[in-house]
């Protein structure tokens, strides 16, 4: 039987499973959790019908941003620390490079979870959220200016040309002639539209 008959998804799963069986990098699971938390938590927050929409948006953005910071921290510590440190320790102690790398990968995840991510969130979240607040505040005020409310006296200035224009008055004025001609009660004193 040819391997071409095998489902491509199944091939990928088999390949991935063999790799995981050989070496289960802790980065896989923490990144998967961060990714799905970054999607699911804001989604659940936005689905909450009882909360105020503005508060929901703020909370969802904050939750998403927290997970983005977490994912970046996990990858950055892994890429920056593990390989150079493992090489250094192998050279210095003569231990197994593979085992030291595995150990350091796990310790980097621990370091990120316990220390670096909360620290990064404390440093980054507040300034970013304040910036977002300012931005959305400005947008909101500009929207309010354009918002026309019902039964409210308009403050929009009338163009000078219109306000200063004086219509001719008297029995021969266009207005008087049209009213006399087209009103149903031509003979009466009742005037419509004046």
């Amino acid at each position: 039987m040819s391997a071409a008959n095998l489902n491509p998804i199944l091939k990928q799963i088999a390949k991935g499973a063999f790799k995981l069986g050989n070496h289960n990098d802790p980065l896989n699971v923490v990144l998967a959790i961060a990714l799905f938390k970054g999607i699911n938590r804001p989604l659940f927050t936005m689905m909450d019908k009882e909360s105020d929409p503005q508060v929901k948006k703020y909370a969802a953005f904050r939750e998403g941003l927290t997970e983005v910071i977490a994912a970046i921290t996990y990858v950055a510590t892994n890429k920056i620390l593990v390989n150079p440190l493992a090489k250094y320790l192998t050279k210095k102690t003569g231990g197994s490079f593979g085992k030291i790398t595995n150990g350091l990968e796990f310790l980097c995840v621990c370091l990120s979870a316990a220390l670096l991510i909360p620290l990064a969130c404390n440093l980054v979240l507040n300034p970013v959220m304040n910036g977002v607040k300012k931005l959305t505040g400005k947008k909101k005020s500009s929207v309010n200016k354009l918002d026309i409310k019902e039964n409210e006296v308009s403050n929009i200035a009338v163009p000078a040309q219109i306000s200063t224009h004086k219509a001719p008055v008297g029995p021969n004025s266009l207005l008087q002639v049209l009213q006399n001609k087209y009103t149903p009660y031509n003979g009466g004193n009742m005037k419509v539209g004046v």
């Binding site: 991935g16 063999f18 995981l20 050989n22 289960n24």
Partner: peptide, 11 residues
Amino acid sequence: QFYMGKGGIEM
């Protein structure tokens, strides 16, 4: 030969 099974459980 046991890697794929073990990896499957981890997956």
